[in-house]
Design a protein around this nucleic acid. Structure first.
Lengths: 234, 234
DNA sequence: CGCTGCCTTGACACGCCTCAACGAGCGTGG
DNA sequence: CCACGCTCGTTGAGGCGTGTCAAGGCAGCG
């Protein structure tokens, strides 16, 4: 559970987390709903493997993805405070997740102020990512948007050991990318071709290869500081 | 301080808040920066009057507004936990604000778990608004986008007594709306004309008049549940 | 009175969407 | 083993939505 880039956690803290996350792993198919809009959930989901998404469904059968969850991410921390869910959480690929009861979280927070703070930090990073997505969608060109999203995913996956400087697995369809970026599948396709032609990325099957990460980041105007992970790695 | 729609606060809680907010009001001109990107602030800003914004500045002199703050809003709660600010906060109109030290907040939270919870709620609502903005910008047409933003502002202003069902003051330029919605000033202008021609809004000077709020909300596919304010008013 | 900020208009180009069809990979079942 | 159907990536053609550039109008203000 390498999510904890927020604060120095003690050995006890880690043991506490281990105890919670050690068991109850659930395998979920792709396309399954974990939490529905309108629900008032009493547990939260930790993604151990696979990719999930926070999304809102709109009129006309469209879907707007507002967040991706990669391994190590908590999907719906804090929702208890707001009451009803204002969105849905679903898996995008086959996932293995861990369900943690609200009560358990509360107990852990009470036992370790450091973990409590780390969880709070995690919420705020989610919000920071949301802000950056807003900038991305609102103010960047399609090619930069995709490049930026790839940079973010590379960075986030790298912090949990699922990406290197030069490549990572990305089992998302172009349709899903389109739902996240607010563009049509066709245009995602053509734009990715453009990136490939410029040798900014190489993609085959579900793997993204980055010939020159620095150049891609510069092209996307990607500045990882919004992820607030710099303190312990870079 | 009517911000507290989150929880039933006791008389003591209110007194506590009064004590903090009763003094130290600062008048700020339009266009002033309250907190800069890269800073590590030790106090936060409460907007008492006027409108402020959270924004990121991009290459080419452009600016992306990712949140509006209306009277009653806390601008930068919690930033302490993240470390450096990843964005800037500025006034859009002349404002009167109250600066509250981090320490003060901590003390209040310690004294009243209800206020602590309400502040947490406030953070989560900010995040929910961000999600809805993402949906708006990514997946709605320009006219719906503007209509939706107006619906949201009407709703939020109404909860603090600054809007009625039929009208409210909106001292924002079309350029500012464009920076928030990711569209050019020219297009904001033409789109607003479209809304006016359809009698969805009437705007004169800095006042927005809503001939039929329900119709506007339906047009914008506006569902206020994401604001999580319904419990005590509607 | 002239300045300045903001709204408004027109013309033109291009990014992006839509519809439609085809191809490649792959699991399934005959 | 091959044929089928499914999902996903890819292409083409055509049209509209939006950005850009440039200019004019209007109101507030010193």
């Amino acid at each position: 559970m390498k999510l904890r880039h927020a604060a120095a956690l003690t050995a006890e803290d880690c043991a506490l987390l281990e105890a919670v996350t050690g068991s109850r792993r659930i395998a979920v198919d792709a396309g399954e709903t974990l939490v529905s809009e309108g629900e008032k959930p009493v547990s939260m989901n930790l993604v151990v493997d696979g990719i999930a998404a926070r999304h809102k469904d709109l009129a006309g059968g469209r879907r707007s993805i507002v967040a991706f969850f990669v391994p190590g991410d908590l999907c719906d921390l804090n929702v208890a405070i707001l009451g009803e869910m204002d969105h849905t959480i679903s898996t995008l690929t086959p996932c293995t997740i861990i369900r943690i009861a609200d009560r358990t979280i509360e107990e852990i927070k009470a036992q370790s102020p450091r973990i409590s703070r780390a969880l709070h930090w995690s919420t705020l990073v989610d919000e920071a990512i949301l802000r950056e997505w807003l900038v991305n969608i609102g103010h960047r060109s399609a090619d930069q948007q995709i490049a930026h999203l790839l940079c973010e995913l590379q960075f986030r996956l790298a912090t949990v050991g699922r990406a290197t400087q030069t490549e990572f697995e990305l089992p998302l369809t172009q349709q899903i990318l389109g739902e996240a970026l607010g563009m049509s599948t066709v245009h995602v396709n053509r734009t990715m071709q453009l990136l490939r032609n410029n040798n900014l990325i190489v993609s085959s099957h579900r793997k993204i290869i980055l010939p020159d990460l620095g150049r891609l980041q510069r092209f996307a105007e990607f500045d990882p500081s919004y992820l607030h992970l710099l303190s312990e790695e870079n």
